[in-house]
Every structure is written in C-alpha cells, then in structure tokens.
C-alpha cells in the first residue's frame, strides 16, 4: 500500500471499509452490542422505578451513561481485532500507522453512531424524553461517537492481543470518557431551558481533537506492541 495505493486518506478509507465489511458479515454490533445497550435502557427503570416524570428527568443522563459504558464494547469487538500476523502483513504492505488508526476509528465512529441512534430511539420512547430543539443534537451525538471511537480504538490498540484486553478496555476508557459524558449530558440539559450549549459543544470538540492528536502521536509506537 505505497504510492500506487494512494495517499493516507485512501488508506484510511480502505481500513474503514474493511472494518465495516467485517461487521456487515459478522453482525457483531448489530446483533449483540446494540441489543445489549437497548436492554440496559429497558432494565434501569425496573431497578429505579417507572415513575414517568422521574424517568423523563433522568432519562437523558441514563442514556449517555449507557452509551459510554456499553458503546465502548464496539471498540473491542472481535471484528476490529487484528492478530499479530495480520498486523505484520498490513505494516509490510506499507500502511501508514496513522491511516490505520484513523481508519479503525472511523469505522468504530460509524458503528457507534448507529448504536447511539437505535438506543436513543428506544430511550426516547421508553422514558418519554422531550426532544426540544433536537437539531442541536446533530452536533452532540456524532461528537460523542467520534470521541468514544477514538478513545476506544486507542485503548484497544494498547491492549491488543492481551488475554484480559476485552475486560481492560472498558475500564481504561470509562474514566477518560468523563469529558465526553459531561459535554453530552450538559448540552442536553442546557437545551431545555433554552441556554446556549456552545461551551459544551466546544468541550466535546476539544476532547475529540485532543484524542485525535494523541492517536497521531502514538500510532507508530503502538504498531510495535505485541
């Protein structure tokens, strides 16, 4: 994958396409992760009570907690994992590690966006969430998906081929996802009284940018992890 295979962007697209094709064949996110997130949304009221005004009030927060805790499983999905032999082959083909990182993160972002939309529809219906000024969510929802995908891809690369990797990644990601959680929930909270959500959107963009930079800086050393 050197000159004739196109630049970094083409490589990024090729990797993202590979990951999405694998998901299409195996259906790991569609059949396991998304239903798991949806059932979490269903089970919480069984535990805390089904008083609708309460659910409507705490619903958005519950939704974002579910997205961050369960959506991270998308980053550790089996179809995103590469065996050492596969990694060697891909790097021998001349894939830019940065393109590889962004390609994997892009595929995870798209899958996470799907996760957010389906689980979000379930949460809106079950908790009777008021979607006032919903067009603003067009900024918040993909922002959270991108941030979580970048974070999850980083953590998954760091723990690649470790036997405890699938358990470690959610644990490593959760504390670092706090800015994303706060930005998303506070943006939704501010939507209702009609306040500006711009500071929270900016926080999310800053978090996404910082993670993207971290990915660029660590892509090369990460390639050497076994």
């Amino acid at each position: 994958m050197s000159r004739e295979a196109g630049g970094g962007f083409a490589q990024t697209l090729a990797i993202a396409r590979r990951d999405l094709l694998r998901e299409q064949r195996v259906g790991e996110v569609a059949w396991i992760t998304i239903p798991f997130g949806a059932i979490a949304v269903l089970l919480v009221p069984l535990a805390v009570g089904t008083d609708l005004p309460t659910l409507t009030r705490i619903g958005p927060g519950l939704y974002w907690a579910v997205v961050l805790l369960f959506g991270v499983f998308i980053a550790v999905r089996k179809t995103a994992a590469e065996t050492p032999a596969q990694r060697d082959l891909i790097s021998l083909l001349g894939l830019d590690p940065v393109a590889g990182f962004f390609g994997r993160a892009a595929a995870s972002s798209i899958l996470l966006l799907g996760f957010e939309l389906v689980v979000g529809a379930v949460a809106v219906a079950l908790y009777n969430i008021d979607l006032a000024r919903w067009p603003w969510m067009i900024l918040v929802v993909p922002g959270a998906a991108i941030g979580l995908a970048l974070l999850g891809t980083l953590a998954a690369s760091i723990t690649a081929n470790l036997s405890t990797g699938p358990a470690l990644v959610p644990f490593l990601v959760a504390p670092l996802a706090v800015p994303l959680l706060l930005a998303a929930t506070q943006a939704m909270d501010s939507l209702r009284p009609g306040d500006s959500i711009l500071p929270w959107v900016l926080l999310m963009v800053a978090a996404d940018l910082a993670l993207a930079i971290a990915g660029v800086l660590t892509a090369r050393p990460l390639q050497e992890t076994r």
Partner: peptide
C-alpha cells in the same frame, strides 16, 4: 495470497 493495493485490507478475519 495477499493482494497488494487498495483491497489489501480485506483479508479474512
């Protein structure tokens, strides 16, 4: 056999 080029990413997992 590994195919070099844009489709190289499609190795079976």
């Amino acid at each position: 056999a590994p195919r070099i080029g844009a489709r190289a990413g499609e190795e079976h997992g």
